[in-house]
Simulated assay, not measured.
Amino acid sequence: MALQKGDKIPNFTSIDVDGNTFNSKEYIGKKAVVIYFYPKDDTKVCTDQACSFRDNYEAFKELGAEVIGVSSDSVASHQKFAKKYKLPFILLSDSDKKLRKLFGVPSDLLGLIPGRVTYVADKSGVLQLVFNSMSGKIHIEKALEIVKRM
């Protein structure tokens, strides 16, 4: 069952870009979070999306929100991607696709491409936005708009 607006984000763990264990309890329920799932590191639309989040990262931080990117790429791939584009936010490796399943992120293009969905939760961990679109840059605008209203 896919998470929807009004749902509380369940606790989860994953591996971050530095190979450390990320525990959602450190963020969710303590500050606003923007969690975005994307198909693949270093591809055109995914890079544009990541760079847009990077370019707006300070605005999210000033509003008290943390940005977290998630794809099924390996930690090594995330390290190269983050370094190449100077990405300041958290990247999580979901190589076993547990987070995709937990959030209920759908696949696109007949199930061949992992979906691109952005989730925005308030300080209580309750989802205020679930935005599903293969167009990368729109996600940043939608997420920032919601965070500003919270």
Rank of each mutant, 00 (worst) to 15 (best):
N20F: 02
K84T: 15
D94P: 14
E62S: 10
K80Y: 01
G104I: 11
L112Y: 10
K31R: 13
A65N: 02
D18A: 14
L110D: 13
V117Q: 10
V105E: 10
E145M: 02
S135H: 07
P10Y: 00
K31T: 11
L3I: 03
D94H: 00
L92W: 03
V33G: 08
V45G: 14
D48N: 15
K83H: 11
R149M: 10
S77N: 15
K80P: 01
K86T: 07
L102F: 03
Y119H: 07
G104A: 09
K8R: 11
L87S: 05
S93C: 05
E58W: 05
F53A: 08
I35G: 10
L144G: 14
E58P: 09
D55A: 02
V147I: 14
V45A: 08
G6C: 09
N23W: 06
H78G: 11
Y36S: 04
N132R: 08
S52Y: 13
K80Q: 13
E141L: 09
V117A: 13
L91T: 01
P106W: 10
L129R: 08
K137Y: 00
G104N: 12
V120K: 06
V147W: 08
A76P: 00
M1R: 10
L129A: 11
L127D: 15
N11V: 03
S124V: 05
